[in-house]
Simulated assay, not measured.
Amino acid sequence: MTRAPIPHRRGGGFSVVELMVSVVIGLLALMFATRLVVSSEQNKQAALGGSDSMQNGMLALFSISSDAGQAGWGLNDPLVAGCDTVFNDVQGYALAPAARGAAVVRPLAAAVIESNGAAPDRLTLYSGSSMSGTGVLRVTRDYAGEADIVVERVPYGFALGDVILAAPLTAGAARCALAQVALDPRLQAGPPAAQALNIATGTAFRFNAAGGLGVNYTNGQAALFNLGPAATLSFHTWSIRSGFLQLRAADLAGAASTASTVVDNVVSLKAQYGFDTRVGAAFTPTSGLQVGRWSATMIDADADGVVGGAGDYQHVAALRLAVVARSKNPDKANASGVCTSSTVAPTVFASAEPAGVTPAPILLNVAVSGDAVDWRCYRYRVFETIVPIRNAGWRPI
């Protein structure tokens, strides 16, 4: 008996060739999807980095320019502006140093710039808060370190805890000095011999030191100014450290001796003085100041032969400010391991403002000390503004 042959049937499923084609197509799809996701993430990171730097830079510039707009209040008298000043603070705030010829002084002025070339500057802005602004008392006796400063009249407008500023009646004849009223002046009211302001030491009077003002005045050749309550004395120093904008402030608890961080990822702060270069009879500050020259350092603006003299600070008409903020996260390097997000360091103050005034551009160093990531891996935004020193023109005649 012969058995009929069984017909050959093809097995179910995919052939090896079909499987290989499917795998290749899947890998290609996965590769394109991965590239799409990576590209999307990079674009997202760049957008977020730009948003971070925009927000941080604007906040930093707004904070500093707001300070600059008030700078000089109560310090705009020619006897005071630029005066080398003795200052003591038990909480540790110190006045900014500045060059005056070959000497180093600590001047009271609207602004003091400690210029650092391509590196971040340190900017100090001073102002008082007394509503009297330029109220003055004359000292009527020799002063040689006593706790009581005898004055010409009942010290109306001066209150317990107010910060007073002593200045020589002849500019440059002696140093200025700051102290704090330690006894309610109403308790010392009486005959002229008893009219005085007391600056004794005490735990509540942080600006008072043993030995009084630290400056002697003879023949009553001194005047006293009221800068307002100690709690609102706006002595602020702005600086950059390790990519953070920092502030030392006499009126901010805990920030007098050690700077407090204000904004992160701010890598540079630059400032320039705008000098009114008119001299002699042509210099009429009460009729308005005008910028004739920008400089990061002091110049002999009043042509008295001394660079950084008190008169030079009185010729400062405006401040030119710039801050540079960077993205929070660095971009990735290219296939060669080189970052190209920023190939050229930022330059500030390159435009001629006001019109006709020659700019003094500065090429910045935005590398952060201690940061292992190359500065070229970050994206940067530059913010600039010009702030008039309005209180410089509102000075007594």
Rank of each mutant, 00 (worst) to 15 (best):
236 H>S: 00
237 T>K: 10
238 W>M: 00
238 W>H: 00
239 S>L: 09
241 R>M: 12
243 G>R: 07
244 F>P: 04
245 L>V: 08
249 A>L: 04
249 A>M: 01
249 A>Q: 01
253 A>H: 08
256 A>N: 14
259 A>R: 06
261 T>L: 06
261 T>F: 02
264 D>C: 04
265 N>P: 02
265 N>C: 03
266 V>R: 02
266 V>G: 08
267 V>K: 00
268 S>C: 13
269 L>H: 04
271 A>K: 01
271 A>N: 06
273 Y>F: 12
276 D>Y: 01
278 R>W: 05
280 G>R: 09
286 T>W: 07
286 T>S: 15
290 Q>R: 15
290 Q>F: 07
290 Q>V: 15
291 V>T: 12
292 G>A: 14
296 A>D: 07
297 T>Q: 13
297 T>R: 11
298 M>N: 06
299 I>Q: 13
299 I>M: 14
300 D>A: 11
302 D>M: 04
302 D>C: 13
303 A>W: 04
310 A>L: 00
313 Y>N: 03
314 Q>V: 03
314 Q>L: 04
316 V>H: 00
316 V>T: 01
317 A>L: 02
317 A>T: 01
319 L>R: 00
319 L>Y: 02
320 R>H: 14
325 A>E: 03
326 R>Q: 12
328 K>N: 09
329 N>A: 14
330 P>D: 09
331 D>V: 04
332 K>R: 14
334 N>W: 08
337 G>N: 11
339 C>V: 07
343 T>M: 10
344 V>W: 06
345 A>K: 07
346 P>Q: 08
349 F>C: 05
349 F>K: 02
350 A>V: 02
351 S>T: 15
351 S>K: 12
354 P>A: 14
359 P>C: 08
360 A>G: 03
363 L>N: 15
366 V>M: 06
367 A>C: 12
367 A>Y: 05
368 V>H: 11
369 S>V: 13
371 D>T: 07
373 V>T: 12
373 V>H: 01
374 D>C: 06
375 W>E: 08
